[in-house]
Structure formats: C-alpha cells, structure tokens
Amino acid sequence: MNNTMERKYLPFEKPLEAMEKELAQLQARKQETFADNQAEIVRLQQKLSETTRQIFSSLTPWQKVQLARHPNRPHALDYINAIFEEFIELHGDRVGADDPAIIAGLAKFEGTSLVVIGQQKGRDTKENLTRKFGMAHPEGYRKARRLMALGEQLHLPVITLIDTPGANPDMAAEERGQALAIASNLQHMAGLRTPILVVVIGEGGSGGALGIGLGDRVLMQEYAIYSVISPEGCASILWKNQQAVEDAARALKLTAPELLQLGIIDEVVPEPPGGAHRDPAKAAEVLAKAMRKHLTELKTISLEELVELRYQKYRKMGVFREISTTAET
C-alpha cells in the first residue's frame, strides 16, 4: 500500500489523529536531528495503543461497516502484492469485455501456484470511475468463472478476495445479464473440482459478493462485513428512514463474529490493533498465515470428497422450524 496516501479519520477514530500525528513528528525529528526523545516516543506509543484498544474493543456494528469501507483500508491488489510472490493479471471474459472491477490472474503463494480473483475498489475518484467502485458487471463474473474453470483444469486452488458494495446496478449490467452471470457462477463454484478459499477483506455486498464467494472455506477479516443488503438499503426499506442505519446494521448481524456464530463463515482473521489500515503489512502477514493453514488442509482432501463436503456445507445453511402436525413424511 502507498505510504504517502493521506490518512483519513472516521469520527470515532478522531481521538487517535492528534496522537498519531504527534508521534510521526517525534519520530521524524529523531531521525532528522538525532534528538534524544525516545522516552517521549515510548510514552506516546503506549498512550496511543491504550486509546486504540479502548476504541476498538467496543465498536458498534455500524462503526465496523465504516471500517470495512475505510478509504485507507487495504484492497485486493494490496494483499495480492503483499502476499503472493508472483502475480500475472489476466483479462477478458471471452465474450465481449473486460471488467476492471474484478481482477483475476495466476499467482504463486509460498511455492504453490493458484488462481486468484478479487473485487478491486479504487483509491481515488478517478480510479474508482475505472474500477466502478468495485461493483462488477456480468463480464467480471464471467472472467472470474473462466479463471475458476482454468483452476479446475490445471489443478490449481482458487482464492477469491471479496470487497464490493454489490453487483453493479446500472442499465448495462441488466442488458448483459447480471442475474444470469451471478447464478451461473454459483452453480459453477458449487461443482468446481478444485479447492476454493474465499476471504472477505472489506465489504461483502450481497449477491455481488457471493458471485465469487461460494467456497470450501470462507474466512473473514475482523472488521469486514457481509450482508444481504446494505444497512442504508435496509433502513430505507424497513424503517423508511435513512437515519436508521445504526439500527439496521445491528439488526442485520453483518459482522464477522456474528456470521461465525450463524455458521456462514468458518474463521475470523484478526486485524492489527486499530484495523488493517493502520498496519497493512501486518494485516497481510496474518491473512497469509490463515490462507496457508486452510490451503494445506484443503489439499489433503480428495476432489470427490471436496465437492461433496462443499455441497453439505451449503446444504446445512439456514435456520427454520419443522412442525409435525401434518401426516407427511
């Protein structure tokens, strides 16, 4: 990630701003003038880490939504560059377009070749216009599908990185079959004869996220979210009030620990204190460790069993009641 990127602060991060700036100044002065301010630096660091701990130990679901969308949060390409030794991005859906909202390619991870697919948000307005804010069109899903098929063919595991507000809701997407593109990816992933490891690294926006998100293991970073609808959308439909986003975020149970409890994800991947954007290198390191563990486990399972286990995993999802008043079997 770019070090010169301007640090932005969410309202609840504000108490950290002054301290982080002061700390940066102290460290700069030490480097430039060899000032003997080490004691002062340590004291400030302690204060900073204590304040960070306090703020981040009691985040509300809505605050986590904001963190998942944090303008400084590492994106798919940041993790790809940090974690994989080699990455060659490949392009095109072989039907008529290439979608910059989804990046896909071949990579090497600790000696293992694999297919990597991720939704990519932009860093600034210009980049976001190109990347469509990470909201894929049908061609993005088709490119993803094409590379998953390549993974199956070459016996390469597939890693997908999820970070999207949702599938692109514009006219072009509808004209080119958005629903069909997502549906066929789901079917394809359900039967894919190679391991699929899914990581939600930011926003898991509904069907648009799931379109590359059906896998053998689904991991989620600590401050990522995954939801059937955005809190804004839910608030306006069920509360008829945009101000109700905090209530909606709470009601939807969209945070990583809640989804772990509901059995929708398999593991919460911890983030550095203060969130992935405070220490992207550390976040990538922890994520790589989790990837390694799961890929190693998945590699030991036969392909037949893998597809069967994947089916059973999703077969079990859902909570309902079965009443026994009818004479049916």
Binding site: I182, A183, L186, Q187, H188, A190, G191, S206, G207, L210, G213, L214, Y226, S227, V228, I229, C234, I237, L238, A251, L252, K253, L254, L259, L262, I264, R310, Y311, Y314, R315, M317, G318, V319
Partner: peptide, 27 residues
C-alpha cells in the same frame, strides 16, 4: 427482491444453497 432482510446473510446463503442443488441435478 430475492433477499429476505429479516434473515440477513442466512437469506443470502440460500442463493448458494439452491444453486448447489441445481448443480446436482445437472451432474
């Protein structure tokens, strides 16, 4: 709309669950 908001991500996962069932029919 497809999504049943009251069931959150569990509702979303029904897309995966039903698609996986169709995949079995195909196979």
């Amino acid at each position: 709309g497809g999504a049943r908001m009251y069931e959150g991500a569990l509702s979303l996962m029904q897309m995966a669950k039903t698609s996986a069932a169709v995949e079995r029919l195909h196979r």
